[in-house]
Structure formats: C-alpha cells, structure tokens
Amino acid sequence: MKTPKRIQPLVDDGLVDEVKSQLMSGKEASVYVVRCGDEIRCAKVYKEASQRSFKQAVAYREGRKVRNSRRARAMEKGSGFGREQQEKVWQSAEVDALYKLAAAGVRVPEPYGCFDGVLLMELVTDDDGYVAPRLNDVMMSEEQALEDHQLVISYIVKMLCVGLIHGDLSEFNVLVDAYGPVIIDLPQAVDAAANNNAEWMLTRDVNNMRDYYSQFAPALANTEYAKEMWSLFEKGELTSDTELSGEFVEQDTVADIAAIMQEIDAAREEELARKERLKEAQQGVDESKFNWAE
C-alpha cells in the first residue's frame, strides 16, 4: 500500500522498509502493519489534537510532570508552543508506560521507540502469525475466563504498584495470544498518586474487566477487586505479590460524638489562651511605653 505521509520519514531513515497494510483507525491513532528488515511490527500514528475524538483528555493529563520549566509554563498558558509540547508529552506517554510496565512484569507490546508521533512496537500475533484478536472477539470457557481475569487483575495491580492506571481499559484494549491477555493502548495512562481522578478511573478499568469476563464466569459478577486494591494502595500495603480476594466490606464509621466535642472544647480553650497571650503581650507593650515616657 501507499506509505502514509507520517510514516515516510521513518522509511527515509531506514527504520521502516515497507508498509504492508492498515490494521485499524481509532479515536487517537491509526495503526499500520509494517516490515522492519526481517521483522513484522506495527506503527501507531498518533492523530493531531484537532482530529482526536478522545474525550476528557484534560482529566487524563492531570498530574503529568514536565521537567523543563519553560515547556511547563507554555503548556499552562496554552500557547502555540505549549500545545506543541503537550502533544509531545501525550505521544511519549505511551512509550514511557510500555517500558515501565514491561519492566514491572505486565504483558504489553514491546516498544521500539517513538519518532515524530509514530510509535514502532511489537505486533502481537496468534499461533498462525495473524494479528491477535481483541478480547471482545474471543469466546472462552468458564475456567479460561476465571484464569484470564485473574491474570488481568494481577497486571492492574502491578501497574498500580509502579504508579500507573490504564485509564481506558476494556475488552477493546486487550489482545489475546497463545499466552493470554496483552494490555494495549496506553497514551492516556494516569499517575495514580497525582491525578485526582485516579480512583474512579481504576474502578472503571477493573469493573470493565469484571463485567466482560463475568459473561463467561458469572461468579465474578459480585467481586469488588477495585475497592479492595485501592484501599490497600491508599494504606501503602499493596505490592505486586498481594493476593486479593475480590471481597471488600465497607467500613461504616460511627461518629464518636464525645471525641468530637472534646476536640471542639480543646480548640476553644486554645483560642481563648491565644487571645489571653495576645492581651498580655499588648499590655506589656503599653506598660513599656508608659515607663519610657516617665
């Protein structure tokens, strides 16, 4: 097929030898199957901001840090240079997340680098060499659903333990090869500690997986993995090896009225004491003035 304009510079630089076909066109990027020497890989071409239909992008960018202060200020002001830098941050977020998650033991496509808005990475395939299907196209037994769901939950835990939340995880962002689920599409990955939307994004990711796999394994329908793992994460008790039960009991905290009243009384007494100290200090100033005048 004809080489897309955005991929042509990679062909000119010898990074890509041939564009074989278009794999898909999504809300933030188009993906192509390419040949790089003797290997078949995929090239993800990110769309310009004006062409993306990805909703609530601001919510996902919250908490992303930029080391260069000039770039950070420009991005905050929304200048032309700032918008350009924001695009670079958006595009590099996925490759950064891929390297980080692979090191943490999460199955993701192997990245080979991002070049001017084009991400080169591993093409995940099935046993016959064809592109691996998305999870939403896969039928499975109850036993397989339970096994794969547990594996995906372990990946989400590993992601959370290195400070990342996918943010858009669903059966459409998971591929399935001979070894099981592979997590894909990570440009919107959020910082679990710095993003105010982190908890509900994690909950949505986990519950999307629960709802899909429960079609094949109904026992999963009532699990509460999201609440369980977030509670442990907030307390600093979540590790990549934590064994989750899928059960979570809400803590109904009964207000201790006596303790609250004690705090109010203590605060009132402290305020009275503060005023008394100010009064005494002022009297001391007045007396010193009087003595000086004499």
Rank of each mutant, 00 (worst) to 15 (best):
K2V: 15
K2C: 10
Q8M: 10
L10F: 10
D13P: 00
G14P: 04
L15F: 02
K20Y: 08
Q22F: 01
Q22D: 02
L23W: 11
M24V: 06
G26W: 10
K27Q: 07
K27E: 01
K27A: 10
Y32P: 00
Y32N: 01
V33D: 13
I40N: 00
A43D: 08
K44D: 00
F54C: 01
F54A: 05
K55M: 09
Q56Y: 15
A57C: 05
Y60T: 05
Y60D: 13
R61C: 06
R61W: 07
G63W: 13
V66C: 09
R71C: 14
A72H: 04
A72T: 03
M75I: 09
E76V: 12
K77R: 12
S79F: 04
S79C: 09
G80I: 12
E84I: 06
Q86N: 07
Q91C: 09
Q91T: 02
Q91G: 02
S92G: 08
S92H: 06
A93V: 05
A93K: 08
L98I: 07
L101T: 12
A103C: 05
V106W: 07
R107L: 09
P111C: 05
C114P: 01
F115T: 01
G117C: 01
G117I: 00
L120Q: 01
E122L: 04
T125Y: 13
D126E: 04
D128Y: 07
Y130D: 14
Y130V: 00
V131K: 05
V131A: 11
A132M: 02
P133R: 05
Q144T: 14
A145E: 15
A145P: 13
C161K: 11
V162G: 02
G163I: 06
I165M: 06
G167K: 05
G167Q: 05
L169I: 10
E171V: 06
E171D: 13
F172Y: 13
L175Q: 10
L175M: 14
V176Q: 03
D177Q: 06
D177E: 06
A178Q: 14
Y179P: 07
A189S: 15
V190E: 02
A192D: 08
A193K: 15
A194N: 06
N196V: 15
E199D: 07
N207F: 04
N207L: 00
N208P: 04
M209V: 15
R210E: 15
Y212A: 08
P218V: 07
P218N: 11
K227Q: 15
M229T: 05
M229N: 02
F233H: 04
E234Y: 05
G236T: 01
E237R: 01
L238H: 01
L238A: 03
T239P: 09
S240P: 03
D241Q: 13
D241F: 09
D241N: 08
S245Q: 12
S245R: 11
E247Q: 13
V249D: 14
Q251A: 12
D252M: 07
T253D: 14
V254S: 11
A255E: 08
I257K: 04
A258Y: 03
I260D: 15
M261T: 11
M261H: 08
M261W: 06
A266F: 04
A267Q: 13
A267L: 10
R268D: 11
R268P: 00
R268C: 04
R268A: 12
E269K: 12
L272K: 15
E276S: 12
R277G: 07
L278F: 04
A281H: 06
Q283P: 00
G284F: 09
E287K: 06
N291D: 05
N291T: 14
A293Y: 12
